[in-house]
Lab assay of single mutants.
Amino acid sequence: RPMNAFMVWAKDERKRLAQQNPDLHNAVLSKMLGKAWKELNAAEKRPFVEEAERLRVQHLRDHPNYK
């Protein structure tokens, strides 16, 4: 299953946050990521939305029978 825009963004952002906050549990990091994503405007999200769409199209090509 291809990543959605949030997952594309969160992949690198989670690493950055975890390095800055090594003692935080994953659940806390996830909440921080969700809050930060909601605060991004459409222009800030656009590159990740476009990458998610590219991944979706590639997934359809690679797995035409996937449901």
Score class of each variant (00 low, 15 high):
55 L>N: 06
27 A>H: 10
25 H>M: 02
52 A>G: 02
40 L>V: 03
48 F>W: 08
66 Y>M: 13
62 D>N: 10
8 V>D: 03
43 A>D: 10
18 A>H: 09
61 R>V: 13
51 E>I: 05
3 M>R: 04
24 L>G: 02
56 R>S: 08
14 R>E: 04
10 A>L: 02
37 W>D: 03
51 E>S: 04
62 D>F: 08
65 N>T: 13
5 A>Y: 02
60 L>C: 14
40 L>C: 05
62 D>C: 09
64 P>A: 13
10 A>S: 08
23 D>F: 11
14 R>K: 10
58 Q>S: 11
21 N>E: 10
11 K>G: 05
10 A>D: 06
33 L>E: 06
27 A>K: 13
11 K>V: 07
29 L>D: 07
17 L>I: 10
58 Q>T: 11
21 N>K: 07
42 A>C: 07
42 A>K: 07
49 V>Y: 14
55 L>C: 05
57 V>W: 09
21 N>W: 14
14 R>C: 00
28 V>W: 01
9 W>I: 05
10 A>P: 00
46 R>G: 09
5 A>I: 01
54 R>Q: 11
44 E>T: 04
58 Q>H: 07
58 Q>K: 13
13 E>D: 09
6 F>A: 02
62 D>W: 08
60 L>P: 11
53 E>W: 03
30 S>Q: 15
38 K>Y: 06
27 A>P: 09
63 H>Q: 14
4 N>E: 10
17 L>T: 01
61 R>L: 10
10 A>F: 06
64 P>I: 12
4 N>W: 04
10 A>Q: 03
3 M>T: 11
7 M>K: 15
40 L>R: 02
47 P>G: 07
24 L>F: 06
30 S>A: 10
20 Q>K: 14
26 N>F: 09
53 E>I: 09
13 E>I: 04
1 R>L: 03
12 D>Y: 01
25 H>W: 00
5 A>L: 01
44 E>C: 08
17 L>S: 00
63 H>M: 11
36 A>D: 05
55 L>Y: 06
35 K>N: 13
57 V>D: 12
63 H>W: 08
23 D>N: 08
57 V>L: 14
28 V>L: 08
61 R>S: 13
56 R>V: 05
49 V>M: 07
49 V>S: 04
67 K>Q: 14
21 N>Q: 09
20 Q>F: 02
26 N>M: 10
12 D>W: 06
54 R>C: 02
49 V>P: 00
6 F>H: 00
44 E>L: 07
21 N>Y: 15
59 H>N: 11
16 R>H: 03
26 N>C: 07
34 G>A: 15
9 W>G: 02
36 A>L: 11
64 P>M: 13
57 V>K: 11
18 A>P: 00
16 R>L: 06
47 P>K: 06
30 S>Y: 09
11 K>M: 13
17 L>F: 08
46 R>V: 05
15 K>R: 09
46 R>D: 03
21 N>V: 01
12 D>Q: 11
45 K>S: 01
20 Q>N: 09
26 N>G: 13
35 K>C: 07
27 A>L: 09
10 A>T: 01
34 G>T: 15
16 R>K: 15
9 W>Y: 08
24 L>I: 15
43 A>V: 09
49 V>D: 04
56 R>H: 09
46 R>M: 10
45 K>W: 00
64 P>T: 14
48 F>I: 01
56 R>A: 11
64 P>E: 13
11 K>I: 10
13 E>P: 02
34 G>Q: 15
8 V>C: 11
29 L>E: 06
20 Q>L: 11
41 N>D: 14
46 R>P: 03
54 R>G: 04
66 Y>G: 15
54 R>I: 05
61 R>A: 12
28 V>G: 13
42 A>P: 13
50 E>K: 10
28 V>F: 06
36 A>C: 01
52 A>N: 03
40 L>D: 01
57 V>H: 15
25 H>G: 14
22 P>G: 02
8 V>R: 02
65 N>S: 14
41 N>P: 15
22 P>M: 02
53 E>T: 07
26 N>Q: 13
45 K>L: 00
61 R>F: 06
11 K>Q: 11
13 E>Y: 15
44 E>M: 05
56 R>E: 09
33 L>H: 09
12 D>F: 06
17 L>H: 00
33 L>T: 02
39 E>F: 09
51 E>N: 00
37 W>P: 01
62 D>G: 13
31 K>I: 06
35 K>M: 10
45 K>M: 04
55 L>Q: 10
10 A>K: 00
9 W>K: 02
66 Y>P: 15
42 A>W: 10
19 Q>T: 10
15 K>Q: 10
43 A>I: 04
8 V>G: 02
32 M>F: 03
44 E>W: 04
9 W>L: 00
34 G>R: 15
28 V>I: 13
1 R>K: 00
35 K>Y: 13
60 L>N: 12
65 N>H: 11
15 K>S: 00
29 L>G: 06
43 A>P: 06
48 F>P: 03
18 A>D: 03
65 N>F: 04
32 M>K: 06
61 R>Y: 08
5 A>E: 04
46 R>C: 09
27 A>D: 15
41 N>T: 15
38 K>D: 12
33 L>K: 01
51 E>A: 11
4 N>G: 08
33 L>M: 08
17 L>R: 03
30 S>G: 11
21 N>R: 10
33 L>Q: 08
47 P>Q: 09
53 E>N: 10
49 V>Q: 12
41 N>Y: 02
51 E>G: 01
14 R>H: 04
62 D>V: 08
14 R>M: 08
57 V>F: 08
59 H>S: 13
50 E>T: 05
41 N>A: 07
32 M>R: 05
66 Y>A: 14
27 A>Y: 03
43 A>H: 10
15 K>Y: 04
36 A>G: 06
55 L>H: 08
64 P>F: 07
51 E>L: 08
20 Q>S: 10
30 S>L: 07
37 W>E: 02
55 L>M: 12
66 Y>I: 14
20 Q>Y: 00
55 L>V: 07
54 R>V: 05
64 P>K: 13
37 W>N: 13
38 K>R: 11
38 K>A: 09
11 K>W: 02
11 K>E: 09
18 A>L: 15
41 N>G: 14
4 N>L: 03
60 L>S: 13
43 A>T: 13
67 K>M: 05
43 A>W: 06
62 D>S: 12
8 V>A: 06
54 R>S: 05
42 A>V: 09
56 R>T: 05
25 H>L: 03
2 P>M: 13
55 L>W: 05
11 K>S: 07
12 D>I: 03
39 E>N: 02
47 P>M: 02
32 M>W: 04
49 V>T: 02
27 A>W: 07
52 A>M: 00
53 E>M: 05
6 F>N: 04
37 W>L: 00
24 L>R: 06
14 R>Y: 04
20 Q>C: 07
20 Q>R: 10
31 K>E: 14
7 M>G: 07
26 N>W: 11
36 A>Y: 13
48 F>H: 02
60 L>I: 08
10 A>W: 00
66 Y>R: 15
21 N>M: 11
9 W>C: 01
38 K>W: 04
19 Q>L: 12
31 K>L: 05
21 N>T: 04
50 E>I: 09
3 M>N: 01
19 Q>S: 11
4 N>V: 01
55 L>R: 09
13 E>S: 01
40 L>F: 04
61 R>N: 12
30 S>V: 10
28 V>Y: 08
11 K>N: 03
56 R>N: 14
41 N>E: 10
30 S>T: 13
25 H>Y: 00
38 K>F: 06
48 F>Q: 01
9 W>P: 03
50 E>Q: 06
66 Y>V: 15
29 L>V: 13
46 R>A: 11
24 L>C: 10
15 K>T: 05
25 H>E: 15
38 K>I: 05
15 K>G: 05
35 K>W: 00
60 L>E: 14
5 A>P: 08
39 E>Q: 11
61 R>K: 14
26 N>E: 15
54 R>T: 01
7 M>L: 09
19 Q>R: 13
23 D>Q: 12
45 K>P: 00
16 R>G: 00
60 L>Q: 13
26 N>R: 11
54 R>N: 05
49 V>I: 11
27 A>N: 08
12 D>R: 08
12 D>C: 02
40 L>A: 02
26 N>K: 14
49 V>R: 11
14 R>W: 05
28 V>H: 14
21 N>F: 14
9 W>E: 04
5 A>Q: 00
56 R>Q: 09
2 P>L: 08
35 K>D: 15
59 H>C: 14
18 A>K: 13
66 Y>S: 15
41 N>W: 00
5 A>S: 07
42 A>R: 07
33 L>G: 03
67 K>D: 15
67 K>L: 15
25 H>Q: 13
16 R>P: 00
41 N>S: 14
67 K>G: 11
27 A>F: 04
2 P>E: 15
44 E>K: 09
40 L>T: 02
3 M>A: 02
64 P>N: 09
39 E>W: 03
50 E>G: 00
63 H>I: 05
41 N>V: 03
10 A>G: 00
33 L>S: 05
62 D>T: 14
21 N>A: 04
35 K>A: 07
